[in-house]
Amino acid sequence: MILDLTDVTVSFTTGPPLRRTRLDAMRGVSLSVAEGETLGLVGESGSGKTTTSRVALGLQRPTSGTVRFDGRPFPRRRKDLAGRMQAVLQHPHWSLNPRMRIGQSVGEPLAVLGKAAGELVPEALEQVGLEAGFAGRYPHELSGGQRQRVSIARALITRPSFIVFDEAVSALDVSVQVQILNLLKDLQAEYGFAALFISHDLGAVRYVADRIAVMRGGEVVETADAATFYSAPEHPYSRQLLESL
């Protein structure tokens, strides 16, 4: 297993002093992602998807439970993980630093590792279907779909074993979504990275996921193979979700 979440609970305290209320964003969540596999995580807003992605990325420490990446707990120093885990995030508008050229953005994970980017940046751009010439442009010259392609190129450049896609296609229109999802499948077939694909859109998840986990109110209500899930969902909530599709 590349990623293992066992009985993870994350709670936040909110409200004024003396009347603090505890809010569990995740309650006893157990999930795992195998090498090369895509786990689709679906659920409505507020179901704990984003917190789960933050825990999976090591950005949020669980209140209780254990998280293991590649068989080991997260190292104290983030740098020890550099290049092995990447993410493609939600907003095409904010996914790239507006003050950096595309080439710099794509090459940054390599720079973090202290490696020279060299030929790898144009190569990475071509892998996601963009011309090498894009390296010299600024993000504001690109469309939303092109920016998400750049984000994918940036995530792939260190050949990570695990990538989190957090609502990575939700802000794009449908035809562009399909292109990006196809691209993802092709790239995964080629490089074999494992992925956690988080979305509120069951249609998009169906397209890429090998297994599906459904979250509701901070809990995982069902985990199943994609084929089983879409043909015979077990949990009433899953059925309800599928009906609305």
Binding site: W94, L96, N97, E108, A155
Partner: peptide, 26 residues
């Protein structure tokens, strides 16, 4: 809070790089 800062942090970028390359120019 912007995604490019989060993405850089996930890549393992250290504080000087994040502040100098991403936050300061913006």
């Amino acid at each position: 809070e912007r995604d490019y800062v989060t993405a850089a942090a996930i890549s393992g970028a250290g504080l000087p790089r994040i502040l100098g390359r991403h936050v300061l120019p913006n």
